[in-house]
């Protein structure tokens, strides 16, 4: 069984001195700089064995000027999860360390998030657009993205 979020927090803070987490319900908030270390710890500690990232995405909150990264980590070895990690980013300068060195499964998901949300993943081996084409302007999943009306008459 997976330990409760509070227990996860205390265990990680003991294993990684200097790292502080915030618990909010079932969610663990992590600072961007600590993210790879926390994930590595969750992956390599035998009790947790969170060996793959099931899902990874962003949520945009323009009214607060922030963008949240959401990670769902699960364990195939222990058959438990998901553990939800969140990282708060500044939406005008959304940069977070890439998880691809820890979890290979993050590679395409991070490319997707970069493509649709414009989050930059530092240390990603191949950060390019994946669903949209090269040269596309903007990031369409951002809440303030204006969809071009293709049926509108051309300006005369």
């Amino acid at each position: 069984m997976l330990p409760a979020p509070e227990e996860l927090k205390t265990t990680i803070e003991q294993l990684l001195p200097g790292v502080t987490l915030t618990v909010e319900g079932a969610i663990l908030w992590v600072t961007p700089a600590n993210l790879p270390a926390v994930c590595r710890c969750l992956k390599e500690t035998e009790r947790f064995s969170l060996d793959y990232v099931a899902d990874l995405t962003a949520v945009d909150y323009p009214q607060d000027g922030r963008m949240d990264m959401v990670y769902h980590l699960c364990s195939m070895a222990k058959r438990h999860g998901p553990v939800t990690l969140k990282v708060k980013l500044d939406r005008n300068n959304a940069t977070v360390p890439s998880l691809t060195p820890v979890y290979r499964g993050a590679e395409y998901q991070e490319r997707e998030t970069y493509d649709l949300y414009g989050v930059t993943f530092e240390g990603h081996p191949d950060l390019r657009r994946i669903l949209l084409w090269e040269g596309f302007k903007g990031h369409p999943m951002r809440k303030d993205y204006v969809v071009e009306d293709q049926d509108a008459p051309a300006p005369s």
């Binding site: 060996d51 099931a54 499964g105």
Partner: peptide, 17 residues
């Protein structure tokens, strides 16, 4: 496992998940 493969692709590699 590390690459988040799931379904028959994962199980063919020997991980019963």
């Amino acid at each position: 496992v590390n690459a988040s493969a799931t379904g028959p692709v994962l199980r063919a590699s020997g991980q019963a998940y």
